[in-house]
């Protein structure tokens, strides 16, 4: 299945891109995808513990099971206001 991954704020500087597509096997969890992305973009791993994760417009837990076509966002703590 194909997952679209978006990086926001300075995470896009860490990866050098705002968006990428990752092909992964069925049954991949959000945590597994995050690990995979950290391997692909090692600088992201430095911020692993503070990374926020969303699927579509909702925050999701690490054990969230991804589906084909999901849009996943990884980003640092938010700073609105």
């Amino acid at each position: 299945m194909i997952i679209t991954v978006q990086f926001w704020s300075y995470f896009a500087d860490y990866t050098g891109c705002k968006k990428t597509e990752i092909e992964t096997e069925n049954g991949t969890t959000l945590a597994k995808l995050h690990e995979r992305v950290c391997e692909q973009f090692p600088k992201l791993a430095e911020a692993k513990n503070s990374t926020l994760k969303a699927v579509g417009v909702n925050y999701q837990d690490d054990d969230f099971m991804l589906s084909d076509g999901d849009e996943v966002s990884f980003f640092p703590p938010v700073q609105g206001g």
């Binding site: 926001w8 704020s9 300075y10 926020l52 969303a54 925050y59 966002s73 980003f75 640092p76 938010v78 700073q79 609105g80 206001g81």
Partner: peptide
């Protein structure tokens, strides 16, 4: 509202 925004709403500043 403001406290929740600062925890949950995906806005960032540079």
């Amino acid at each position: 509202l403001i406290e929740e925004m600062k925890q949950k709403v995906p806005i960032w500043k540079k």
